[in-house]
Amino acid sequence: MSTPPLPIAPDLLKAVRESCLEAGAIATDLFRPGAKTAARTWSKSGGSPVTEADIGVDTFLRIRLSALLPEAAWLSEETVDDALRLSRRFVWVVDPIDGTRAYMSGLPDWAVCVALLDEGEPILGVVHAPASHATYTTLRGGGAQKNGGAISTTPVSRLGEARIAGPKPMLDALARIEPFEPVDKIPSLALRLARIADGSIDAGLISADARDWDLAAADLILRESGGTMSGGAGEAVVYNRATPVHGVLVASGNGLSAPLLAAMQRLRETQSQRL
């Protein structure tokens, strides 16, 4: 039996959006368009980069969002994971700066991402991209918006007509199965999904190892705009697991989902025959 929606959801979305705008301003203070960031940078264990802006935004959002919904647990790229989230109905899922490498290099494709999970399902999402002048918002069942206006995916249903973004090795492999129009990689996974949602592109591929915080907010935005994201074999995306890591993912408008998954299946069969 599904749990009821939050009765304060519309007001909560407005407050979360305002919090993300403020968080974006914190990050923008150290962002240098076309140049190296003014923020101090270092590498985390595993080699991925982090900046003082990531930490500052994370701290700000944890204080602000926890005040908005104190009963919600917390899952963020820049905070030590707490298993308490596995037993909570509500969980904030946050990526302070999705696309940190782009941010560090002065490229515009980075975003502040916030989702709220209810029993593991996204019910609220905000993806705020200050340098791209785009703020995407959604509530489950309420459609998706960009800068306050309704958005929707494209009606494209043929792979040969599709504009697809993703890592070049994945695009090259898929193109050997069926032709399409490749799009330059969008460094922020959240923006890759959001641009499918607003019709800028038709589909996106995501390599293995994405995390809940990269995906949850933009996944709901995509769903509410008439799109879908799944594993490469069509399996559902599950959030708030003990290890919040995902395999290969594909995303598109609903009309393109079946042909894209069929092409991915043929790609897997071809690759297995070569082994």
Rank of each mutant, 00 (worst) to 15 (best):
P5V: 12
I8F: 08
I8K: 09
A9H: 06
S19K: 06
A25D: 14
G34V: 10
A35L: 11
A35T: 10
K36D: 01
A38K: 12
S43Q: 14
P49E: 11
A53M: 11
D58H: 13
T59S: 14
L61I: 12
R62G: 09
L65Q: 06
S66G: 15
A67P: 02
A67C: 06
A72M: 08
W74M: 06
E78N: 06
T79S: 15
R88W: 00
R89Q: 15
W92D: 08
P96H: 09
V112Q: 00
C113I: 02
A115F: 06
D118H: 12
E119K: 07
E119A: 15
L124W: 07
G125F: 09
H128L: 03
A131T: 06
S132A: 14
G141T: 13
G143C: 13
A144K: 08
K146D: 00
N147F: 03
R158G: 01
L159M: 09
L159Q: 04
G160H: 01
G166N: 14
P169I: 13
P179E: 02
F180S: 02
D184G: 14
L189W: 00
L189G: 11
R195D: 00
A197F: 15
G199Y: 03
G199Q: 02
S200K: 08
D202C: 02
G204Y: 04
S207I: 04
A210H: 10
R211T: 08
R211Q: 14
D212W: 10
D212P: 05
D212F: 14
W213I: 00
D214L: 08
D214F: 10
A217K: 09
L220R: 05
L220M: 07
L222P: 08
G227Q: 06
T228Y: 01
V237G: 05
T243N: 06
V245G: 00
G253F: 07
G253I: 01
G255M: 07
P259T: 05
L260N: 01
R268Y: 10
T270Y: 06
T270E: 15
Q273H: 13
R274Y: 02
